[in-house]
């Protein structure tokens, strides 16, 4: 390709981009907003107005639909990997096999290092939770559209940006920790877990807060057409990636850590029996 052709191509591309930008601004200015920014953000927190019908059975929050989509996508991917990739695994792994093994070993290692005495179930749980949080958080990047019961279109949020999902995940993690306590120490394990009751709230609302903040910022950015160029690359993509990683790490790490703590077999300290010599010495 010579220089002249390159220049022509560059100019055409710039004209197309400029025309699209102008068109976006013009159409954005002319259209009517379905709801104000206050309503949008309030609904992102409370889910009062925008609900989606679940196969006509009941109305659910949009985050639950996101959860179902994430679950289906993950299970299909897992099934495909199980059927096509795992039987072809080799002792000297290729790139894809290495990635899969790294993910599994990451959570397995986390479970083993934090709870060396009991980690089979813990590893499986934090693997599921970690993958769900990570993929669920990245899900909001795709902006899949859904129709609400009001007839408006909304983009599906991250599953855990719904307080109910965050409570479900936090509460389940707490129950898993308690199950570890019971398995390791019986009734004492329940006592040990109840001492950390604040975990129930902290884990739930940490997840909710982190993901909701991402959602609110994204909503805010996309609400105004002027902010919808360039800025989302940083705000949406980078921040979403970052907090997907952080929240995955935080919840799985906390669960593994407390699971290990409460399931650790208790060692009763032997009372020191004073020898006669010591008694005499102390009496003197």
């Amino acid at each position: 390709m010579n220089k002249t052709k390159k220049k022509v191509g560059l100019i055409v591309w710039l004209i197309i981009v400029a025309a699209l930008a102008v068109a976006c601004v013009l159409t954005g200015l002319g259209g009517e907003k379905a709801e104000t920014i206050q309503e949008t953000m309030r609904d992102a927190v409370l889910h009062e107005t925008n609900r989606i019908s679940l196969f006509g059975l009941m109305d659910v929050n949009p985050a639950f639909i996101s959860g179902i989509v994430v679950t289906v996508v993950l299970l299909v991917a897992a099934a495909l990997i199980r059927i096509f990739a795992i039987p072809r695994f080799k002792y000297v792994p290729g790139k894809f096999q290495m990635v899969i093994e790294q993910v599994v070993s990451l959570f397995d290692g986390l479970a083993k290092s934090n709870s060396p005495w009991r980690n089979g179930f813990l590893g499986a749980y934090i693997f599921g939770a970690g993958v769900y949080i990570f993929v669920g958080t990245l899900f909001e990047l795709f902006g899949f559209q859904a129709i609400t019961t009001n007839g408006t279109s909304i983009s599906l949020p991250a599953p855990l940006s719904d307080v109910n999902a965050a409570i479900a995940m936090g509460g389940l993690s707490y129950l898993v920790i308690m199950s570890g306590g019971i398995a390791g120490n019986g009734l004492n394990g329940i006592g040990k877990t109840l001492k950390e009751i604040s975990l129930l709230i902290s884990m739930s609302f940490r997840l909710f807060g982190a993901l909701l903040s991402g959602l609110l910022v994204t909503e805010l950015v996309y609400y105004y057409i002027n902010l919808s160029f360039v800025l989302p690359v940083v705000v949406a993509v980078l921040f979403t990636l970052l907090h997907a990683l952080i929240q995955t790490y935080v919840l799985t790490m906390l669960t593994a850590l407390y699971y290990g703590e409460v399931s650790e077999p208790s060692h009763k300290e032997k009372k020191k029996v004073k020898s006669k010599a010591e008694k005499v010495q102390s009496a003197a």
Binding site: T71, L74, L75, A78, A79, I81, R82, I100, V104, F107, G123, A124, F127, G128, V131
Partner: peptide, 8 residues
């Protein structure tokens, strides 16, 4: 459960 049986 699915991830455990299919992948983990």
């Amino acid at each position: 459960g699915g991830l455990y049986f299919l992948l983990y």
